[in-house]
């Protein structure tokens, strides 16, 4: 296993574990407001300090990890669920179908992701699950693009031709013959999408369109801390650093997977 993959798994694993155990390990209630403990700097009681309502930043950080992870993973699952079939069909059927699907994808990709997310959220009252769907939707064309290019490479390989020579249905060829071979690059792409989804979800929360107060999404925490950044920088710093750490961890996993799954690395030994 490449070293990057190990490091990435360790970081992300720790964050996931801490977030899951948050209700039990959080040192303070995450939503209890107290005037007396406002703007406490980091201390032995409040490791990461307290915010403007006197809430413990560490506890909120742990609880918020759940929302951010749910956002990242949920949005990625949605984008893979819709993007992969679109890409497979475009790549395998080709011709006009491919043209139409990919031009739609181009249009969606030309609009800035945050605008697209805003558009989806602007028409309905904000809720976290809607943000996840919106972010997932934004990444459908990207996943579809990757799935299409992998499919193009596989569509004329001889084992697919053998399936056609057995009069297999298109569904069988796409999902049983091509898809199992397309997973490695798709997994790598999806792992990188998780990162972007968390960032975009946080950005939408920051703009007030994602998680709503008093919940403690990381993006929302940064947004709320903005006003006090000169007086109490720790309130913004903690979720900011946590997000950096998670992004780095997931990127390490993505790079590690790429290295592990890349067939070119195996073929170097074929010359022997």
């Amino acid at each position: 296993m490449p070293a990057q993959l190990k490091a990435g798994l360790a970081i992300v694993g720790a964050i996931v574990l801490l977030s899951l155990l948050a209700p039990w390990i959080a040192p303070h209630p995450w939503d209890t407001i107290s005037i007396r403990t406002r703007f406490q700097p980091p201390s032995t009681t409040y490791w990461f300090g307290t915010d403007d309502y006197g809430r413990d930043v560490l506890s909120r950080l742990l609880m918020g990890g759940r929302l951010s992870l749910a956002m990242g993973i949920g949005a990625t699952v949605i984008s893979v669920l819709f993007g992969v079939p679109v890409g497979l069909i475009a790549g395998y059927v080709g011709g006009k179908v491919d043209e139409v699907l990919m031009r739609i994808a181009d249009v969606l990709m030309a609009v800035p992701a945050i605008m697209l997310g805003l558009l989806v959220l602007a028409v309905t009252p904000p809720a976290l699950w809607k943000t996840a769907v919106a972010v997932g939707f934004v990444y459908v064309p990207l996943i579809a693009r990757v799935a299409r290019s992998v499919t193009l490479g596989l569509a004329n390989v001889e084992f697919v031709e053998a399936a056609r020579a057995r009069a297999e249905s298109a569904a069988h060829i796409l999902f049983r013959e091509i898809l199992p071979n397309a997973w490695p690059p798709l997994i790598v792409e999806a792992s990188l999408r998780v990162t972007y989804a968390i960032l975009l979800g946080s950005a939408l929360s920051f703009l007030g369109l994602g998680a709503q107060p008093p919940s403690s999404d990381w993006g929302l925490m940064i947004s709320e801390a903005r006003a006090f950044i000169d007086r109490a920088p720790w309130i913004a710093l903690a979720p900011g650093l946590a997000m950096c750490l998670l992004v780095i961890g997931i990127n390490l996993i993505g790079d590690g997977l790429r290295e592990r799954l890349d067939p070119r690395l195996k073929s170097q030994l074929a010359r022997v």
């Binding site: 390989v157 001889e158 084992f159 031709e161 053998a162 020579a165 013959e177 199992p180 071979n181």
Partner: peptide
Amino acid sequence: QIVFQNPDSSLNPR
């Protein structure tokens, strides 16, 4: 039926 040239690519590796 058909038998292909390249045995590496004619069988689904998965």
